[in-house]
Amino acid sequence: GKMTGIVKWFNADKGFGFITPDDGSKDVFVHFSAIQNDGYKSLDEGQKVSFTIESGAKGPAAGNVTSL
């Protein structure tokens, strides 16, 4: 299901970062391709987001990332 969290950091040049889930679980990798907006796909440190957990090739990653 949907989770919420805070963006820990995001490197716009490399197109990835990490989200710290509100439930205290392990930080989740986020790739820019998972960001659900029409414009420039980037996130800001400290931004609140909702997301799902998808299993990627390198382990769990955030999917369906939407800013709240």
Rank of each mutant, 00 (worst) to 15 (best):
residue 61 A to T: 14
residue 50 S to G: 07
residue 48 K to G: 07
residue 49 V to S: 01
residue 32 F to E: 09
residue 4 T to D: 04
residue 23 D to I: 06
residue 8 K to G: 03
residue 6 I to A: 07
residue 13 D to Y: 15
residue 33 S to E: 05
residue 68 L to Y: 06
residue 36 Q to K: 12
residue 7 V to F: 02
residue 56 G to C: 05
residue 50 S to E: 14
residue 60 P to T: 14
residue 26 K to N: 12
residue 52 T to K: 05
residue 35 I to N: 03
residue 2 K to D: 08
residue 64 N to M: 11
residue 56 G to V: 07
residue 42 S to F: 14
residue 28 V to P: 01
residue 45 E to I: 14
residue 40 Y to D: 12
residue 64 N to I: 08
residue 5 G to Q: 00
residue 1 G to F: 07
residue 10 F to E: 00
residue 12 A to I: 14
residue 41 K to C: 07
residue 37 N to L: 13
residue 67 S to D: 12
residue 21 P to M: 06
residue 45 E to L: 13
residue 4 T to P: 03
residue 29 F to G: 02
residue 33 S to Y: 05
residue 25 S to G: 13
residue 64 N to S: 11
residue 58 K to W: 15
residue 38 D to Y: 09
residue 59 G to R: 10
residue 44 D to I: 14
residue 57 A to L: 13
residue 12 A to E: 11
residue 21 P to E: 02
residue 64 N to Q: 12
residue 5 G to E: 00
residue 50 S to F: 08
residue 37 N to K: 14
residue 4 T to A: 06
residue 17 G to Q: 00
residue 53 I to G: 03
residue 38 D to E: 15
residue 5 G to N: 00
residue 7 V to R: 00
residue 28 V to L: 13
residue 57 A to P: 14
residue 42 S to N: 09
residue 38 D to V: 09
residue 28 V to Y: 05
residue 47 Q to T: 13
residue 15 G to E: 02
residue 60 P to Q: 12
residue 10 F to S: 01
residue 20 T to L: 11
residue 15 G to D: 01
residue 6 I to G: 03
residue 23 D to A: 05
residue 19 I to C: 01
residue 36 Q to I: 15
residue 14 K to M: 12
residue 61 A to L: 13
residue 58 K to A: 13
residue 29 F to A: 03
residue 53 I to T: 06
residue 19 I to G: 00
residue 65 V to W: 00
residue 40 Y to K: 15
residue 41 K to T: 09
residue 32 F to G: 07
residue 11 N to D: 14
residue 50 S to T: 10
residue 24 G to W: 07
residue 27 D to S: 06
residue 8 K to Y: 04
residue 20 T to I: 15
residue 63 G to P: 02
residue 40 Y to C: 10
residue 55 S to A: 15
residue 48 K to M: 11
residue 7 V to A: 02
residue 50 S to K: 08
residue 61 A to C: 06
residue 17 G to V: 01
residue 34 A to P: 02
residue 23 D to C: 06
residue 1 G to C: 07
residue 45 E to W: 14
residue 43 L to R: 01
residue 30 V to Y: 04
residue 58 K to E: 09
residue 41 K to E: 06
residue 26 K to E: 11
residue 56 G to A: 11
residue 43 L to Q: 01
residue 59 G to I: 04
residue 27 D to Y: 04
residue 67 S to K: 14
residue 64 N to G: 08
residue 34 A to R: 06
residue 45 E to N: 14
residue 58 K to G: 13
residue 64 N to P: 02
residue 54 E to N: 08
residue 3 M to P: 05
residue 17 G to D: 00
residue 68 L to D: 10
residue 12 A to L: 10
residue 22 D to F: 09
residue 19 I to T: 00
residue 51 F to K: 00
residue 62 A to Q: 01
residue 26 K to C: 06
residue 28 V to G: 00
residue 20 T to R: 12
residue 29 F to C: 02
residue 11 N to F: 09
residue 63 G to D: 08
residue 29 F to K: 02
residue 48 K to E: 08
residue 61 A to S: 11
residue 33 S to D: 05
residue 62 A to H: 01
residue 43 L to T: 02
residue 30 V to E: 00
residue 30 V to K: 00
residue 36 Q to P: 05
residue 51 F to D: 00
residue 41 K to S: 09
residue 46 G to V: 02
residue 46 G to I: 02
residue 25 S to W: 06
residue 35 I to P: 02
residue 7 V to D: 00
residue 23 D to P: 03
residue 17 G to C: 01
residue 41 K to M: 08
residue 41 K to V: 07
residue 39 G to R: 08
residue 15 G to Q: 04
residue 7 V to H: 00
residue 20 T to A: 13
residue 38 D to H: 11
residue 1 G to D: 15
residue 27 D to N: 08
residue 2 K to I: 15
residue 20 T to S: 12
residue 31 H to R: 04
residue 61 A to K: 14
residue 68 L to G: 07
residue 43 L to P: 02
residue 66 T to M: 10
residue 40 Y to G: 10
residue 11 N to V: 05
residue 67 S to L: 15
residue 61 A to F: 15
residue 12 A to S: 14
residue 17 G to M: 01
residue 6 I to S: 09
residue 35 I to Q: 03
residue 59 G to S: 08
residue 36 Q to E: 12
residue 10 F to L: 02
residue 20 T to Y: 08
residue 54 E to M: 09
residue 16 F to E: 03
residue 3 M to F: 12
residue 54 E to L: 09
residue 43 L to S: 01
residue 65 V to I: 06
residue 11 N to E: 05
residue 25 S to Q: 10
residue 33 S to Q: 08
residue 37 N to A: 14
residue 45 E to Q: 14
residue 21 P to H: 03
residue 55 S to D: 11
residue 41 K to R: 13
residue 4 T to H: 09
residue 61 A to G: 06
residue 5 G to S: 00
residue 12 A to V: 14
residue 2 K to S: 14
residue 20 T to P: 00
residue 7 V to Y: 01
residue 4 T to S: 10
residue 32 F to C: 07
residue 52 T to I: 11
residue 6 I to N: 06
residue 43 L to H: 01
residue 24 G to M: 08
residue 28 V to E: 01
residue 20 T to K: 11
residue 55 S to W: 11
residue 62 A to S: 03
residue 9 W to P: 00
residue 2 K to A: 15
residue 67 S to Q: 14
residue 5 G to R: 00
residue 30 V to C: 05
residue 38 D to R: 07
residue 68 L to F: 06
residue 18 F to S: 03
residue 3 M to W: 08
residue 10 F to N: 01
residue 55 S to M: 15
residue 22 D to G: 05
residue 35 I to W: 06
residue 48 K to R: 14
residue 26 K to V: 13
residue 8 K to V: 06
residue 66 T to F: 05
residue 63 G to F: 11
residue 15 G to M: 04
residue 23 D to Y: 08
residue 26 K to W: 08
residue 34 A to G: 07
residue 22 D to T: 10
residue 34 A to M: 07
residue 8 K to T: 06
residue 27 D to K: 04
residue 39 G to E: 10
residue 10 F to I: 03
residue 67 S to T: 13
residue 63 G to A: 15
residue 40 Y to M: 12
residue 35 I to C: 04
residue 16 F to L: 05
residue 16 F to K: 02
residue 24 G to S: 07
residue 13 D to V: 13
residue 38 D to K: 11
residue 10 F to Q: 01
residue 2 K to Q: 14
residue 47 Q to H: 11
residue 58 K to H: 15
residue 29 F to N: 02
residue 8 K to D: 03
residue 52 T to Q: 07
residue 43 L to E: 01
residue 23 D to T: 07
residue 11 N to S: 12
residue 39 G to P: 10
residue 65 V to N: 01
residue 36 Q to T: 13
residue 1 G to I: 09
residue 47 Q to E: 13
residue 47 Q to Y: 05
residue 20 T to F: 06
residue 63 G to N: 12
residue 59 G to M: 06
residue 43 L to D: 01
residue 59 G to D: 04
residue 33 S to V: 04
residue 42 S to I: 13
residue 66 T to C: 06
residue 4 T to N: 09
residue 30 V to N: 00
residue 40 Y to S: 15
residue 67 S to P: 14
residue 54 E to Y: 09
residue 50 S to R: 04
residue 24 G to K: 09
residue 62 A to P: 01
residue 13 D to E: 14
residue 11 N to W: 10
residue 64 N to Y: 10
residue 63 G to M: 14
residue 39 G to D: 08
residue 19 I to Q: 00
residue 56 G to T: 15
residue 54 E to F: 10
residue 48 K to S: 09
residue 63 G to K: 10
residue 2 K to E: 13
residue 12 A to H: 15
residue 22 D to N: 11
residue 46 G to W: 05
residue 67 S to I: 15
residue 25 S to C: 06
residue 65 V to D: 01
residue 44 D to N: 15
residue 68 L to S: 09
residue 9 W to I: 04
residue 12 A to K: 15
residue 1 G to R: 04
residue 60 P to E: 10
residue 31 H to L: 05
residue 18 F to R: 03
residue 18 F to E: 03
residue 3 M to R: 08
residue 13 D to C: 11
residue 19 I to P: 00
residue 59 G to W: 07
residue 15 G to K: 05
residue 30 V to A: 03
residue 22 D to K: 05
residue 12 A to D: 10
residue 53 I to L: 14
residue 42 S to K: 15
residue 6 I to C: 09
residue 17 G to L: 01
residue 56 G to E: 12
residue 58 K to N: 14
residue 29 F to E: 02
